[in-house]
Amino acid sequence: MTAATGAQGRIGYEGQDADNPELQEGHRPATGGPSHEASWLRRARANHLGLKLAPVGIALLALVVYLYYQSLGLNDAVIQLRSSLEWGTKLWPQTLQHLQIAFWSTLLVVVVAIPLGIMLTRPPLRRYGPAIVAVANSGQALPAYGLLILFLSLLGQGKWTVIWALTLYALLPVLRNTMVGLDGVDRNIIEAGRGMGLTRMQALTKIELPLAVPVILAGVRVAMILNIGMATLAFLIGGGGLGVTINSGLKLQQDPVLIIGAALVAIVALTFDWIGALAETYLRPKGV
């Protein structure tokens, strides 16, 4: 009897319980941030409005650059300007090189940093984790220029020298996020899984990694953007990339060359940031 009256007094809770499906929908948290946020902003987030608008913005930027490029009247321009800005022999190959450098260095970062991060969060190596992160931290404090020169003296000129240097340079965000992401998984979830007989490996692959994916991906995205930016320095040691155009714009004091080069880097960076955002949104495990 007392239980019955008590239960009525707690309708709010009961509503969430088995018997009342209508109220169920109501208590799900909205996918937004704090409640004081304007509702249009919340809705915009829930619909991934930013993700949808970004490509439009990037396309507009590309269009502006294209119109600017056309307005330069390259056919009548001085030879230096014309040859620096030639699409087929300069700009396009440099963009490809730029992308290759960024792609391979990011891929190598992922291949090295994620397994390393996993190992450094497992019992045998766990205690070395902080030390390794500290080393990686100071590695990043090194000037990128210095790092490139160091690798130049080790590996000689060329694209792959740049790629290895950038791999080292961008290792930290992925390593750190992998470790933070794995450590951030609720111990009770792992305890429950192990308690049901999941092996260490199964707990890692079926619980810990999927739950750490959002954090790891955020690190990969940072590394990718770092690498696209840093690839502009590749020209220093003969690695090519859009840095060549920017550099010649500076040296020849040709503003149009400088602007076109910088704008292309921006377009590449924005595009890949957008792809990164897409990946973060759609690779995030459901239910989290």
């Binding site: 609720d186 009770n188 979830i189 792992i190 305890e191 429950a192 899984g193 308690g195 049901m196 079926k206 619980i207 999927p210 739950l211 495990p285 459901k286 239910g287 989290v288």
Partner: peptide, 13 residues
């Protein structure tokens, strides 16, 4: 095995 914190896998139905 049942624990107080339950530990359901949040990424699974």
């Amino acid at each position: 095995y049942v624990i107080q914190q339950i530990g359901l896998f949040p990424h699974q139905t």
